[in-house]
Amino acid sequence: NQASVVANQLIPINTALTLVMMRSEVVTPVGIPAEDIPRLVSMQVSRAVPLGTTLMPDMVKGYA
């Protein structure tokens, strides 16, 4: 089972991601792979992401 990136806190719209905002977790459906966490740092979210939400490619500007 592949771990995905999950929000560790509420991430407001247009916030630049930092390591403390993200954790890896095995979830369904699968989201952005956990190994991409270093690449996500400083990228902005395109919408508010609630705590515990799996990050999907369309939620991060410039990821897809």
Rank of each mutant, 00 (worst) to 15 (best):
T18P: 00
L55N: 01
P33H: 13
L17H: 00
L51H: 15
S24D: 14
N14L: 09
M21K: 03
A48S: 13
V49K: 01
G62A: 10
R23A: 10
T53L: 11
M56I: 12
K61Y: 06
V30L: 15
R23H: 08
G62D: 12
M56L: 14
I37T: 08
V41N: 04
S24P: 11
T28M: 08
Q44A: 07
L19D: 11
T15L: 05
V30A: 09
L55Q: 01
M21Q: 04
R23M: 07
V30Y: 13
V30G: 07
I32E: 01
V6A: 03
D58N: 14
V5S: 04
D36K: 08
P33S: 13
S46V: 14
N8H: 15
L17G: 02
I37L: 12
T18I: 05
M22E: 02
K61H: 13
M43L: 12
P57L: 04
L55S: 01
P38N: 13
I13P: 08
V6K: 04
I13R: 09
V26Y: 09
N8Y: 04
P29G: 05
D58Y: 09
L51S: 15
P12Y: 05
T28Y: 13
Y63E: 03
N1D: 15
A64P: 15
P29Y: 04
P50I: 09
L51I: 15
V26N: 10
I13N: 13
V30T: 09
R39N: 14
P57F: 06
A64Q: 14
P57H: 13
Q9G: 06
V5H: 00
I11V: 06
D58A: 10
N1M: 15
P29M: 05
M21D: 07
G52A: 07
G62L: 06
M22N: 01
V5P: 01
T15G: 05
L19Y: 13
T53E: 12
R39A: 08
L55A: 01
S4W: 02
G31H: 01
Q2A: 15
Q9Y: 10
V49Y: 02
L10E: 15
L40I: 05
N8S: 15
M21W: 02
R39H: 12
S42I: 03
P57R: 09
A48L: 15
T28N: 11
I13G: 12
K61A: 12
V5Q: 00
A7N: 01
I32D: 00
V60S: 01
V41R: 05
V26S: 14
E35W: 09
V30I: 15
P33C: 05
V5I: 12
G52N: 11
I32G: 00
Y63H: 05
D58G: 09
Q9V: 14
V60Y: 00
L40S: 00
P38Y: 07
S46K: 14
P33F: 13
E25L: 04
T28W: 04
L51E: 13
P50E: 12
E35C: 14
A34S: 14
R39D: 04
R47W: 06
L17D: 02
A34V: 12
M59Y: 08
R47G: 07
P12G: 07
L51A: 14
K61I: 09
V26W: 08
P50Q: 14
P33A: 13
T54D: 00
L17N: 01
V41Q: 05
S24L: 06
S42F: 10
M59H: 14
S24G: 09
N14R: 05
M43I: 05
T28C: 15
G62I: 03
M59A: 12
I11H: 01
P33N: 13
E35L: 10
I11L: 14
M56R: 10
E25H: 06
G31F: 02
M59G: 04
V45L: 11
Y63T: 04
D36S: 14
T53I: 10
T54A: 06
V6P: 01
K61R: 10
K61C: 15
L10P: 13
V6M: 04
D36F: 11
V45I: 06
S42R: 06
L17S: 00
V6C: 04
Y63L: 10
T54C: 03
S24Y: 11
I13Y: 06
V20M: 13
L17M: 13
V6D: 00
N14D: 13
A34I: 09
N8D: 14
V45N: 03
T54F: 03
A34D: 11
E35F: 08
I37C: 04
S4C: 04
T18Y: 03
P29I: 07
Q9L: 09
V49F: 03
D58I: 12
M43G: 03
A64R: 11
V45A: 13
